[in-house]
Structures are given as C-alpha cells and as structure tokens.
Design a protein around this nucleic acid. Sequence first.
DNA 1: ACCTGAACACCGTTCAAGT
DNA 2: ACCTGAACACCGTTCAAGT
Lengths: 231, 231
Amino acid sequence: MSATPRTRPEKSTLSLDAIVTTTLALVDELGYAAVSMRRVAQALETGPASLYVYVRDRHELMSLTYDLAIAEVVLPVESDGDWRARLELLVDRIVAALGSHDDIASIGLSDVPTGPQSLRVTEELLRLLRAGGIDDAACAWAADLFGQYISSSALEIAARLRAQRATDPTHASEAAMSAAMSAHLDAVYRDLPADAYPTIHALAPLLTGGEGGKRAAWKLRVILDGLLAQG
Amino acid sequence: MSATPRTRPEKSTLSLDAIVTTTLALVDELGYAAVSMRRVAQALETGPASLYVYVRDRHELMSLTYDLAIAEVVLPVESDGDWRARLELLVDRIVAALGSHDDIASIGLSDVPTGPQSLRVTEELLRLLRAGGIDDAACAWAADLFGQYISSSALEIAARLRAQRATDPTHASEAAMSAAMSAHLDAVYRDLPADAYPTIHALAPLLTGGEGGKRAAWKLRVILDGLLAQG
DNA sequence: ACCTGAACACCGTTCAAGT
DNA sequence: ACCTGAACACCGTTCAAGT
C-alpha cells in the first residue's frame, strides 16, 4: 500500500499539446458546439481553470484545434498533375480535413487562420496559383475567395455528416441519408405555390439533387475558370 | 389609484412578430452570440419560458430572425441593367443586409434558408440566372455557390464591423479601422521566415491590402465569369 | 511557476402549476 | 390556450489561495 495506486497513465502532466489533441478528439465525439472548457478539463482529469494557464479563452483553444485539423492535409505532389490539378486536389483535401471535424471550420470564417499548418497550406495554395501564371494581386484575392469556399464547403459537409449520424447511427449508405435530407427540402420546394415561385418550382429537383462530389468539383471548376478569365 | 399604473405601453401582448423583431434589434445591439433566450424575454418583459410557446428553440428563433434580415433586400429593377448587372446588385444587397446584423448570416451556413423572404430572393436569383441563358442544372448549382459566397462574405463584413466598433466606438473613418486590422495581419506575414514561406512573404502587402468593395466586386466577377465559361 | 477550489454571472430548456 | 416560477443541468472565466 504505497501512494494511491491508479489505473490511469500516471496523471500525465498537462501540456498545450495534450489539451489541443484532446479538444479535437472531443469535437469529433461530441460536436464543436458541445465541447466546453469544462468537458476538455474533465477529459484531462483536471479543473477548467487549469486550461487557462495554456490558453487565453475558448476561441484561442479552438483556433489551435483548427490548426491541428489542418495538419492532416497532405500537399499534392508533382505526379498529381499540373498546377491546376494539384490546386483542386489541395482544396478538396482541406475541405475534407476540416469537414471531418464537425464545425471546426467555423473558425476560418471569423479569423484569418495564422497557425503554422494553415500557413503551410496557404503557402502551397499561393505557390500553385503563381505557378499557374496568375498575377500577384489576383493570387492574393483568389486565396481569400478559396478560403471562403473552403470554410463554407467544410461546414456543409459537417452538417451533412451530423444529420447522417443523427438519423442513422449505424453508418448506412450515403444514398439513404442523402434521400432523407433532400426529401424534406424537396417537399418544401414542391409545396411552394408555382405562381409565386415559378423558377424554384421548375428547378426543384435540380436544387436538391446532384451527388456531393460532382457538385463540389463543378463549383471549384467555376471558380478556377473564372479566375483564369481575369487579366 | 386604480390598477397599478405603468409607463410601458400596456404590457403589449406577446407575439411571434414581436419576438422576432426584438431579437433582430438585440442582435444589432449586443451581437448574435450574446443574444440569449433570457435577454430576448427580458426585453419583452416576460420570462424565458414564454418564448417557447412561439418558438421551438433558439435556433428556430434565429432562423426566423435571419428571414427578417433578408426582408430588407430590395430586388433590382429593370433600369438597374441587364441580368448580370442585376444579379451582382442582388448579391451585393443580400450580403449588405446580412452583414449589417452581426453573425446572423451563420444561419445560412448550417441551414438551407426556407423562410418566405429567403425564397423571394432565391426565386429572383434563379430567375436572373435563367434569364442569362444559364442551363437549369447550372442554375441550381450556381445558386448553391452564390449562397456560400453570400453567407461567408456577410460574416466577413460582420467581423470587420465588430472589430471597428470595438476599437473605435465613435465611428471614425473606415480607413482607420482597416489600417488597425491589417496592421496586425501584415505584421504576422512580414515576420514570417521568408525561406519557409516565400510566396506569402512576397505577396504579404497584397494579402492584406485592397479596399473591401473592389475585392468583393472582383470575387463576384470571378464566379460569374466562371459560370459563363461552363457548358 | 504551475495549478486549482470555489465562486460569479450567466446559459437553454422543461414542466408542473396557474389563469 | 396561453403563460410562467422554479428548477435542472449546464456554461466561460476569474481569482485568491495553495504547492
């Protein structure tokens, strides 16, 4: 009977790394909105006040967690194709990485992310645009536009995954969920008075239809084609 | 001395309209995140539980408030120009309306807005795209893309206005605030190791520069040019 | 220096009870 | 039907006090 024996891994001293890693895991498990300072502290077997030694507030913790999510993004390589193919791949990967961690992407809409991982992917994004012969001013503004596209697309994906988990926790086919989701929206559009909303009514099936991947690829093509149409 | 005299306008019976109008006013005054069910109730001189007679939860209240914000959007008329000029004007007006009510635009990123005012502007957006000869499938996907652009742009504007109010509550020039804002970001980019981030370093002044209006017009032109490049 | 118990000032939502 | 007091189960953040 020496000092109180414990089953947990020797109380693992607190660190910023441990806090941020735990936060990302909790975001995945509980969702962004449900991750409180108190829950993070609980998961680390400490009190909420202890977190404030490492982090100014919840927003700063989430900004750090955002950067950790971005760390998952593998930069495209030369064999992935020309600058444009690689740029599309890079954007898709950032969207996928953020979208898989619930609403962590919301950080990117209120902040300009400046963590090391965000800078890494931004550097590559700008490098590829420049390699494509886009002029410097356009590169800068395009990065802004891609940032908006990335954040909003990631949130869209996160919302879809959340709805999927809510209606079907056993991970059924994506088609099943897509159907449940657009069924409601389709009903809204179909029940609309056709004389007041003729265009929505006419396009109703197209508004809710379209597999996610093709839609996303189309949108990215629109932005890139538009970019090349400037200057 | 009859029944307790009151200075307030005879206790104004509760209604969904009054609740939503009050909520939008509070969003403007306190900011989206600070508007709680309790504060709305307080402003209406009732208890928070009373709100739940009219509204399922906070999210539903905010969705209704979002639609009220959209009500401010005046549709462009024939004299505003051709379909493209009118579309650009419409998008600008939606962004401006949402952006002037703090983060109410965040509703548009998690929901597909289906309130009557949202449907009104969506109908016009789709009608203009169709008038431009865009094919039906592209119209539907373009509406989605414009929706992302609108919501994220509005949040960007709201964040800028918030920062402006925080640093300068006396409504000084926009230039002053813009300087304060980009000063910090500029510093971040300039202090970056030029060998690790050569492109960011090279483009630093362009990344933070550029007046808001020109930047926004450029982004919208990119999307529209890209749209016309399809099919 | 690092950590934390306890407190402060809040939340959204529910529900039994009232009119 | 409409309203609400009171409660439940939470929040983020601070700070004096401890090691």
